[in-house]
């Protein structure tokens, strides 16, 4: 096995987000990557527990996952979720979990560069905007891989008012997605407005939580503003444009 695909809770369970998991596994299939998933043995990485303050639950989940991964002699991991990515990259090593981890945007970028994943000849496509997930961009410095993939496919990117290091949160992180009490305005509405203000056709992103938040806010803004912006994950876009060699 070349790499373990860590699916994460969001893309495993959420009906809408499962399309990210399907798209990415199809991409790996097309590029003949020898991969596997942990299936039901995979547990939440504990990101949300740790950030909500439940350190013990986080550590129990982390230890269980590290044990499972070691039992299966996993060396290399690819994730579709930037939160899972961040945990493996930055927080699991303190608990003995040293794995080589890649986010799927970097992974796809490498597959294309190595010629393993064949993309169609570059042609002019629509104008899009890219929303940097906090845990991929600002917190782990990955700004270029997702943008490069889109550009290699021929998309033109217009940046939002806040992007890269200054990217504005979608509102889902740190357990905020599960706080039901509504205080103030919704954060994703602000970001949705920024996205619509670019005039682009689509908001691209590379985090399941961001996709959910952006789709929700842009969906309702489309209603009030009469616009027609779509939200898509980069894995979905790449999968739609590639075929098996």
């Amino acid at each position: 096995m070349e790499v373990l695909f860590w699916v994460g809770c969001a893309a495993s369970y959420d009906k809408r987000l499962q399309s990210i998991a399907r798209a990415f596994s199809e991409i790996m299939e097309k590029a003949s990557v020898d991969y596997a998933i942990l299936g039901n043995k995979e547990k939440c990485t504990g990101d949300i527990a740790r950030r909500m303050g439940d350190e013990n639950l986080f550590q129990e989940l982390a230890q269980a996952n590290i044990k499972t991964l070691k039992e299966h002699e996993v060396k290399s991991i690819v994730t579709t979720c930037p939160h899972c990515f961040n945990m493996f990259k930055n927080e699991y090593p303190a608990f003995g979990g040293d794995f080589e981890v890649t986010h799927y945007t970097t992974f796809i970028y490498n597959l294309i560069r190595e010629g393993r994943l064949k993309i169609p000849e570059k042609q002019k496509r629509e104008i899009v905007t890219y929303h940097d997930p906090c845990y991929l961009g600002r917190q782990n410095g990955i700004f270029d891989a997702p943008r490069d993939i889109l550009e290699m496919l021929g998309y033109e990117i217009v940046e939002m008012e806040n992007s890269k290091e200054k990217s504005f949160c979608c509102g889902a992180g740190g357990g905020a997605m599960f706080e039901t009490k509504q205080r103030g305005e919704k954060i994703n509405t602000i970001r949705g407005e920024e996205a619509l203000n670019t005039g682009a056709c689509t908001t691209m992103t590379s985090c399941p939580f961001c996709l959910l938040m952006m789709e929700e806010s842009i969906g309702s803004l489309n209603q009030t503003r009469g616009t027609n912006m779509a939200s898509r994950d980069i894995a979905e876009v790449v999968n739609a444009l590639t075929v098996k060699q």
Binding site: M1, L4, V7, C9, A10, A11, S12, Y13, D14, Q18, A21, R22, S25, E26, E29, Y35, A36, I37, L38, G39, N40, K41, E42, K43, C44, I48, A49, L57, E60, L61, H72, V74, F178
Partner: peptide, 27 residues
């Protein structure tokens, strides 16, 4: 989350259901 090991609290045994029929190797 503690009971079912996922943030949505859905059954842990449904985790790999999305992959069924897709020929995805499970470790």
């Amino acid at each position: 989350l503690e009971e079912q090991n996922n943030i949505f609290g859905k059954p842990w045994s449904d985790r790999e259901d999305w992959s069924k029929g897709l020929n995805i190797p499970v470790l």
